[in-house]
Design a protein around this nucleic acid. Structure first.
Length: 283
DNA sequence: ATTAATGTTCAGAA
DNA sequence: TTTCTGAACATTAA
């Protein structure tokens, strides 16, 4: 479930390999269905081998490894993908290796993906502009202003929880952090965007920054399945600080008066406190 | 043994 | 145009 805090944590870890040169690209043979890789391994080799890594950036929930020749390797972890510099959780789900030409440690950059829904794509500047520019990906959740957030979302008639997941409106928020953010903001997940006041948009914006920055500080959330790991294969610690996510039936930590509830929106679980997050009124 | 649940993105439909 | 639905995949829990 890598969302903005997890992907940002991966990015920071992977940035340790800036300046190193790629000597080889390998796809470990696994009997699983292969992940989406573009272009073909042979073509990717031709364009990547010999290149030095110039920078490591993030766009929403994707890790961008910039090469000297202006190509970019785009890692999209989706559900269970990891970008690693060290020791993957197992051999079985290792999908791609980029081996460095020096003899320093760690020796390689890896893409690991248990479910294999993610992808690794090599894109030139034109492809990058096409994929990330012009309304494809919204402003990053940590860069957007309260005013921008309101103007992008307030026209929608959707429920706020569902709208926050739309990456074209604001980039980086997923199911877990949408729930946490709305709890801190004191907004019911079923509130409709076009019914929020300016001060509620401000509260939402504040809550969004607070939760995401806090989660980055704790290096993201590793849920009970233990899948998410940072670039050094270490788990995050933010799961211990969740206010509502996956806490259905337990007392709300903020008010202590009501139990956290679980509902389904857009076919996904939503968690919230009915006391802290009223559906109607100013709150 | 089967089925549901997990959560991100995209194609295609409403 | 906007919003909704189901599929992609692997694994675990019920």
């Amino acid at each position: 479930m890598p969302e903005l805090p997890e992907v940002e944590t991966m990015r920071r870890g992977v940035a340790a390999c800036v300046g190193r040169r790629i000597a080889a690209v390998a796809k470990p043979r696994c009997r699983l269905k292969p992940i989406r890789l573009a272009p073909s391994l042979a073509q990717m080799r031709r364009r990547v081998v010999g290149q030095r890594i110039g920078a490591v950036d993030r766009a929403g929930k994707r890790v961008l490894v910039r090469l000297e020749n202006d190509d970019t390797l785009v890692f999209e972890p989706r559900m269970t993908g990891l970008v690693l510099l060290a020791d993957p959780p197992n051999r079985q789900h290792l999908r791609l290796q980029l081996v460095f030409d020096d003899h320093r440690l760690p020796p390689q950059l890896m893409y690991w993906d248990r479910r294999g829904l993610g992808s690794v794509r090599l894109m030139d500047p034109r492809a990058m502009a096409l994929a990330f520019g012009a309304g494809q990906l919204g402003t990053d959740a940590l860069k957007i202003t309260a005013r921008q957030l309101q103007s992008r979302l307030a026209v929608s008639r959707r429920e706020i929880k569902v709208a926050l997941l739309d990456q074209r409106a604001v980039a980086g928020i997923g199911n877990l952090y949408a729930a946490e953010i709305l709890h801190v903001a004191g907004l019911h997940p079923r509130r409709h965007c076009d019914r929020l006041t300016a001060s509620q948009w401000q509260r939402l914006h504040r809550a969004m920054r607070k939760v995401l920055q806090e989660a980055i500080r704790y290096e993201g959330s590793t849920l009970s399945d233990g899948t998410y790991r940072n670039a050094l294969n270490r788990p995050g610690r933010y799961q211990n600080r969740h206010r509502v996510y996956q806490r259905a039936g337990q007392m709300c930590l903020a008010c202590g008066s009501r139990k956290v509830e679980r509902i389904v929106q857009a076919q996904r679980a939503t968690f919230f406190c009915p006391a802290c997050q009223p559906l109607k009124g100013k709150a």
